[in-house]
């Protein structure tokens, strides 16, 4: 266990950033998600998130045996080259440890980090229409339901797309926005390489 990655301790539960060099953590995270989320994900999906954005995977461990009891997995990317978008991909808490505010802390950690470190313009996610708990959680932070997606999940349930707007870019139509500085930088680099 890498204590450098300990972020905070809330109610005696330690919150860590995922350790990319720890295969056991990877295994535990994928198992936790596989058991508790209805959508089956391939190993590629876990690697996609955890390898590209290990700094946006936070885990909570049981201090008694250091098993992972909660995880949030996110990413940040440019959206249509004009705004920076955070995306919360998965959030799972072991049922034994629910109702202790762990999910809320994980979401808050993620939002604050995305806002502070990467100046994201918005954070987006999808959740099942019938997942009242998740909706309540995200909406308490200000996430707004922007779209209902018909039969979005493999179990054919509808989803809501939720967005937390954090800058003016989040509510401007992309056609009216200039290219994001990161995209301009990328284009410049590409030009130089050519």
């Amino acid at each position: 266990m890498n204590d450098d990655l300990l972020i905070t301790t809330i109610n005696d539960l330690p919150y860590y950033q995922f350790d990319i060099n720890n295969q056991l953590e990877f295994k535990q995270i994928s198992q936790l998600i596989s058991i508790h989320l209805s959508e089956p994900y391939s190993i590629y999906v876990y690697w996609y998130f955890l390898n590209n954005w290990p700094n946006y995977c936070f885990i909570v461990k049981d201090p008694k045996n250091y098993s992972i009891i909660g995880v949030i997995i996110s990413k940040i990317e440019l959206h249509r080259n004009v705004r920076y978008r955070g995306y919360i991909g998965m959030l799972v808490i072991d049922p034994t440890y629910r109702k202790q505010g762990i999910a809320k802390n994980l979401v808050k950690l993620t939002i604050e980090k995305m806002e502070k470190d990467d100046l994201v313009d918005e954070i987006m996610l999808e959740t099942e229409v019938s997942n009242i708990g998740a909706l309540k959680l995200y909406e308490s932070f200000g996430f707004l339901r922007t779209k209902r997606l018909f039969r979005y999940y493999l179990n054919t349930h509808d989803a809501f797309r939720l967005i937390l707007p954090l800058s003016n870019k989040a509510h401007s139509r992309y056609a009216f926005l200039p290219l994001h500085p990161k995209e301009l930088e990328r284009q410049k680099l590409e030009l130089n390489q050519n």
Partner: peptide, 14 residues
């Protein structure tokens, strides 16, 4: 919402 991490103005425009 009371614990919202964004402004009412952003929510309005979104």
């Amino acid at each position: 919402p009371s614990q919202s991490l964004t402004s009412q103005e952003h929510l309005y425009y979104l």
